[in-house]
């Protein structure tokens, strides 16, 4: 990695960068929260994306009825509205993921501080 502050414990229990430590517990916490966020958005994305060909196959009002000039609902969605959907999803996902990173980072630091405090008490 770019700077050489990374130290990995031989046991594989924690990784330290400067004052910041990842433990397997804190990383699992990050992983589960991130997975929930990513897969929820992923489910919505694939549901909408695959609904378009599905509707193109089975719903005549979607693919054959003109709703504005020559636009069918199918053509309008694929040529225009789909991008609005993608922009909205990418924006909200990025913002939520950033917030999640921040929250989990703070929690990881608390876990680290608590563990360090316990360690010094024991000494």
């Amino acid at each position: 990695m770019g700077d050489s502050t990374m130290t990995a414990a031989d046991s594989g229990v924690q990784i330290q960068h400067g004052d910041h430590i990842d433990t397997i517990e804190s990383v699992d916490l990050v992983f589960r929260a991130q997975r929930k966020l990513s897969f929820t958005y992923g489910a919505v994305f694939f549901a909408v994306t695959l609904a378009i060909p599905a509707l193109s196959v089975w719903w005549k009002s979607w693919y054959a009825v003109q709703i504005w000039g020559g636009f069918t609902a199918n053509y309008l969605f694929v040529s225009l509205l789909y991008y609005v959907f993608l922009w909205g999803m990418a924006w909200t996902y990025s913002k939520q993921a950033d917030k999640l990173d921040e929250r989990l980072g703070e929690m990881a630091d608390v876990i680290t501080a608590t563990a360090a405090a316990k360690g010094s008490e024991t000494e």
Binding site: G18, D22, V30, L104, A108
Partner: peptide, 8 residues
């Protein structure tokens, strides 16, 4: 999935 590096 760790964030220590980015926090640092």
């Amino acid at each position: 999935h760790g964030t220590a590096h980015e926090r640092h």
